[in-house]
């Protein structure tokens, strides 16, 4: 299974949107936070987990998804949300805590919910797993189309929720795919110091389901493997576990000095930045010419600029609205 030209164009453009979005957020996040870094200050307060470098995972998987399909995302959700088709303006506004945001400012960057495209988040490690299985179960019980994808990090594969849910999904043959973004770090703890196996896809054997590992953050390979897993789920053949080697180009969160990284690791990762790499391959294989790609980049930037402007110009929520929407 190989991506079509149109799909490759969508994948590249979406990766660029995601990166440009993160670049914009990164810059604005620091407003009001210097010379003293206080997380509570500035137009975007709170924790900020940027997804720079992890875009191939999101686009390689979501290229196969339709709005009706379900995605549960992590505390680092921007690339996943953008690839799933979450409204960029409302998402930006939510990250700014504005009234026009996805949930009117109640959730913020770690709790992005868009019912129109069946996208939900949890800021708690591995806790999107259960809801993804439940969404998949719901489709099975209702006889409605749709698969559920739970994105988690490699650190989440050591959580009880991961194991409980994989067993449940396999037992009930649910149309679910668990995609592990292996960025090698759980905040400051290396995968090798936290995980008893080198690669988590081998754990699929304990649930009796297929497991795949994809190295080098390769969008083409991710597209292929995810596509087969999703097709399998749609055909009623049950869940698949996929681990993908990806790169966390940013810190765990903004403000992270990353002193735990070995010397030179960041330089090495930046040299393998997946966006220039994909651009180069698209040019090398003559899928697109430079003018095509430049135009995609400039359109991506305009979309991001518009979303950021919308967020900036939107009104704050009424403080007392904090007291609403606890119950349906």
């Amino acid at each position: 299974m190989q991506p079509t030209k149109a799909e490759l164009g969508w994948m590249y453009r979406t990766m660029v949107i995601s990166r440009r979005f993160e670049n914009a957020i990164e810059k604005i996040y620091m407003e009001g936070k210097s010379p003293v870094f206080n997380m509570a200050d500035g137009p975007i307060p709170g924790e900020m987990h940027l997804s720079d470098g992890q875009e191939p995972v999101a686009v390689g998987v979501c290229a196969h998804l339709k709005p009706e399909d379900i995605v549960t995302a992590t505390h680092r959700p921007h690339h996943q949300a953008i690839a799933k088709g979450v409204d960029l303006k409302k998402m930006a506004a939510e990250i700014f805590g504005k009234a026009s945001g996805l949930s009117g400012g109640r959730g913020g960057h770690m709790h992005l919910f868009d019912a129109d495209v069946n996208f939900a988040c949890s800021g708690i490690i591995a806790q999107g797993m259960g809801p993804a299985a439940g969404g998949a179960l719901s489709r099975k019980l209702q006889g409605k189309p749709g698969v559920a994808v739970s994105f988690i990090g490699e650190g989440a594969a050591n959580q009880g929720a991961f194991h409980e849910t994989m067993n449940l999904a396999a037992l009930w043959k649910l149309p679910m795919i668990c995609v592990i973004e292996d960025n090698a770090w759980g905040i400051s703890v290396a995968k090798s110091a936290a995980t008893s196996v080198q690669k988590n896809h081998v754990r699929a054997a304990s649930y009796g389901i297929p497991g795949h590992y994809i190295s080098d953050n390769d969008p083409w390979k991710i597209y292929e493997v995810a596509g087969e897993a999703i097709e399998r789920a749609r055909a009623g053949e049950g869940p698949t576990l996929i681990e993908i080697e990806t790169y966390r180009l940013a810190g765990h969160f903004m403000g992270d000095a990353e002193g735990y990284r070995p010397e030179g690791e960041k330089d090495d990762l930046f040299a393998r930045d997946p966006i220039p790499a994909m651009r180069q391959r698209l040019l090398d294989e003559a899928t697109f010419n430079a003018a095509d790609l430049d135009q995609m980049e400039s359109e991506a930037q305009s979309g991001v600029d518009e979303a950021i402007q919308f967020a900036r110009e939107s009104a704050d929520p009424a403080p007392e609205d904090a007291l609403t929407a606890v119950f349906a």
């Binding site: 806790q127 809801p131 439940g134 179960l137 489709r139 449940l168």
Partner: peptide, 28 residues
């Protein structure tokens, strides 16, 4: 058996699943 399901001893798994099913239009 489809609508009345014995589960594994996995409360985090199946209560989490109930949340996902409820969000998707079911009433678990």
């Amino acid at each position: 058996k489809e609508r009345v399901r014995d589960t594994p001893i996995s409360e985090t798994g199946f209560i989490g699943a109930a949340v996902g099913a409820a969000q998707d239009g079911m009433r678990p």
